[in-house]
């Protein structure tokens, strides 16, 4: 999914010159790059592989507050994911690390990265090739569940595997 998404973003990026120049578009948007022309970028739906993975495994593992330890249910979920990856050897994955909103931004970026990598290390230790796995941290910036309560926070402390 990520790869396809990036392809789409890049394609639009070419139309509008260079993606890194989008900064400052409002202020200095009168140049030749066509910055005033809005490009409507839509996220693609999950690909077949992503959907299949999400249907056939438990794609999300959860963590306790301020923790990156895998408990029994997290390990069980990762074992399902590992078995699936072994059965689908061409699939690649991105593991997204997330935190609840009860920490500071910078620390949570680090904690999200650590959570994603705990899941990654567990997979590598159980026979998945390291080069099939990418990680990204969203810290507390992209919660998957709305709300400012314990229930939402528990769901937002996670490592989510996206297959593509």
């Amino acid at each position: 999914m990520l790869k396809q998404l990036l392809t789409v973003v890049c394609a639009f990026g070419l139309l509008t010159a260079c993606a890194s120049k989008e900064q400052g578009a409002d202020l200095y948007g009168n140049g030749k790059g066509g910055w005033n022309n809005d490009v409507n970028i839509m996220e693609l739906d999950a690909t077949g592989i992503t959907k299949k993975f999400n249907k056939e495994t438990t794609p999300v593992v959860y963590f306790a507050f301020n923790s990156s330890s895998l408990d029994a249910s997290a390990k069980a979920a990762l074992k399902e994911q590992i078995a699936w990856l072994k059965a689908n050897p061409t699939a690649l994955i991105v593991i997204e690390g997330r935190c609840d909103e009860r920490g500071t931004r910078e620390y949570n970026l680090a904690l999200g990265e650590r959570r994603a990598n705990v899941a990654r290390s567990y997979m590598v230790a159980n026979g998945i090739a390291a080069d099939r796995i990418k990680t990204i941290s969203y810290g507390k910036e992209k919660p998957v569940v709305s709300g400012s309560n314990e229930e939402a926070w528990a769901k937002n402390r996670n490592a989510t595997t996206v297959a593509y």
Binding site: L2, L6, V9, A19, S20, K21, E22, Q23, G24, A25, L27, Y28, L109, E113, I136, S137
Partner: peptide, 26 residues
């Protein structure tokens, strides 16, 4: 921006920004 979480440097006057360094991680 560009899909990977990284540190950037922007020139305020021109509005252009550049990626900082060649770091293998975030």
């Amino acid at each position: 921006q560009n899909g990977k979480p990284q540190v950037y440097l922007m020139d305020i006057q021109s509005g252009t920004s550049e990626l900082i360094g060649h770091f293998p991680g975030m």
